[in-house]
Structures are given as structure tokens and as C-alpha cells.
Amino acid sequence: VNVKKLKVSELKEELKKRRLSDKGLKAELMERLQAALDDEE
């Protein structure tokens, strides 16, 4: 998943799939999702 190419709605969906908070600004969502993806690898 390329975090930078996702829309806010898509970021929120990806975060929900991982049971993460989907609250906050786009930058925060991107950071949170990227951290989750880094952990998965």
C-alpha cells in the first residue's frame, strides 16, 4: 500500500481494518498507517 497515494477515506478504511484510530488530520492518518505497515513487514 502506498500511503501517500491514498485518499483520506481510504486511509480511514485501512486503519479500521487494523483496528486503529481513524481520527485526526490526513498527515496523522498517514503516519499511523505507515507505522502499522512498517510493523507488519
Rank of each mutant, 00 (worst) to 15 (best):
V1F: 12
V1I: 15
V1G: 04
V1S: 15
V1A: 04
V1W: 05
V1M: 13
N2L: 08
N2T: 12
N2D: 13
N2A: 10
N2P: 07
N2F: 10
N2K: 10
N2H: 13
N2G: 08
N2S: 08
V3H: 15
V3T: 08
V3R: 02
V3D: 06
V3W: 05
V3E: 05
V3L: 10
V3K: 03
V3C: 10
V3S: 03
V3G: 04
K4A: 13
K4W: 13
K4V: 08
K4G: 14
K4R: 12
K4M: 14
K4C: 14
K4E: 15
K4T: 12
K5Q: 11
K5T: 12
K5H: 14
K5L: 11
K5W: 05
K5I: 06
K5V: 11
K5N: 15
K5D: 09
K5Y: 11
K5R: 12
L6V: 04
L6Y: 06
L6G: 01
L6A: 06
L6P: 01
L6S: 01
L6E: 02
L6W: 05
L6C: 00
K7R: 10
K7Y: 12
K7A: 14
K7C: 12
K7N: 07
K7P: 09
K7W: 04
K7Q: 03
V8L: 10
V8R: 07
V8A: 11
V8M: 13
V8C: 06
V8Q: 09
V8G: 07
V8T: 11
V8K: 06
S9P: 07
S9T: 11
S9L: 05
S9A: 10
S9W: 12
S9R: 11
S9G: 11
S9D: 10
S9E: 14
S9K: 09
S9V: 10
E10T: 08
E10I: 04
E10N: 09
E10K: 02
E10F: 01
E10W: 01
E10C: 05
E10R: 04
L11W: 00
L11D: 04
L11K: 01
L11A: 03
L11N: 01
L11Y: 02
L11S: 04
L11R: 00
L11H: 00
L11E: 02
L11F: 01
L11V: 08
L11C: 00
L11M: 11
K12P: 01
K12G: 10
K12C: 03
K12R: 14
K12F: 00
K12D: 03
K12A: 07
K12T: 00
E13L: 09
E13G: 08
E13N: 02
E13C: 00
E13S: 12
E13D: 07
E13K: 03
E13A: 12
E14S: 04
E14T: 00
E14Q: 09
E14D: 02
L15H: 00
L15M: 01
L15A: 02
L15E: 03
L15D: 02
L15R: 00
L15C: 01
L15K: 00
K16I: 11
K16H: 09
K16G: 10
K16W: 04
K16M: 12
K16A: 14
K16P: 01
K16T: 13
K16C: 08
K16F: 05
K17V: 10
K17A: 14
K17I: 03
K17P: 01
K17Q: 12
K17E: 05
K17W: 02
K17C: 07
K17D: 03
K17Y: 01
R18S: 03
R18V: 02
R18G: 02
R18M: 03
R18H: 00
R18K: 04
R18I: 03
R18P: 00
R18Q: 02
R18E: 03
R18T: 02
R18W: 00
R18D: 04
R19G: 13
R19W: 05
R19S: 13
R19F: 03
R19Y: 02
R19I: 02
R19E: 12
R19K: 12
R19V: 07
R19D: 14
R19M: 14
R19L: 11
R19P: 03
L20W: 00
L20E: 06
L20F: 00
L20M: 10
L20D: 03
L20P: 00
L20S: 03
L20C: 04
L20Q: 07
S21G: 05
S21T: 08
S21F: 01
S21C: 07
S21H: 05
S21R: 03
S21M: 02
D22E: 09
D22G: 08
K23M: 12
K23C: 14
K23V: 14
K23F: 13
K23Y: 06
K23W: 11
K23D: 14
K23I: 12
K23Q: 15
G24K: 01
G24L: 00
G24T: 00
G24C: 00
G24F: 01
G24R: 00
G24H: 02
G24Q: 03
G24W: 00
G24A: 01
G24S: 01
G24D: 02
L25D: 15
L25F: 07
L25V: 14
L25G: 15
L25E: 15
L25T: 13
L25W: 03
L25R: 15
K26L: 11
K26N: 05
K26I: 08
K26R: 14
K26F: 06
K26H: 11
K26T: 14
K26C: 08
K26Y: 10
A27T: 13
A27R: 15
A27H: 13
A27P: 14
A27K: 15
A27D: 13
A27M: 12
A27G: 15
A27E: 14
A27V: 13
E28P: 02
E28Q: 11
E28K: 03
E28R: 03
E28V: 09
E28T: 10
E28G: 04
L29K: 08
L29N: 04
L29G: 11
L29E: 12
L29Q: 14
L29P: 12
L29H: 08
L29R: 08
L29A: 08
L29F: 01
L29C: 05
M30L: 05
M30Y: 02
M30E: 11
M30A: 07
M30C: 03
M30Q: 05
M30F: 01
M30G: 05
M30H: 02
M30P: 04
M30V: 05
M30T: 05
M30K: 08
E31S: 10
E31H: 14
E31W: 09
E31C: 13
E31I: 06
E31G: 14
E31N: 15
E31F: 10
E31A: 15
E31V: 08
E31M: 15
R32M: 02
L33G: 08
L33F: 05
L33M: 05
L33S: 07
L33C: 02
L33R: 06
L33I: 01
Q34V: 05
Q34K: 07
Q34P: 06
Q34N: 08
Q34E: 10
Q34L: 06
Q34C: 04
Q34S: 11
A35R: 13
A35C: 09
A35F: 04
A35D: 11
A35P: 05
A35Q: 14
A35W: 05
A35Y: 06
A35I: 08
A35L: 14
A36Y: 06
A36F: 10
A36P: 03
A36L: 01
A36D: 06
A36V: 06
A36I: 03
A36R: 07
L37S: 04
L37N: 04
L37R: 08
L37K: 04
L37T: 09
L37G: 07
L37Q: 08
L37V: 15
D38Q: 08
D38Y: 09
D38R: 11
D38W: 04
D38C: 12
D38N: 04
D38F: 06
D39K: 12
D39P: 07
D39H: 07
D39Y: 14
D39C: 09
D39M: 08
E40S: 09
E40K: 07
E40C: 04
E40P: 10
E40F: 00
E40V: 04
E40Q: 12
E40R: 06
E41W: 12
E41A: 14
E41R: 15
E41L: 06
E41S: 11
E41P: 12
E41Q: 14
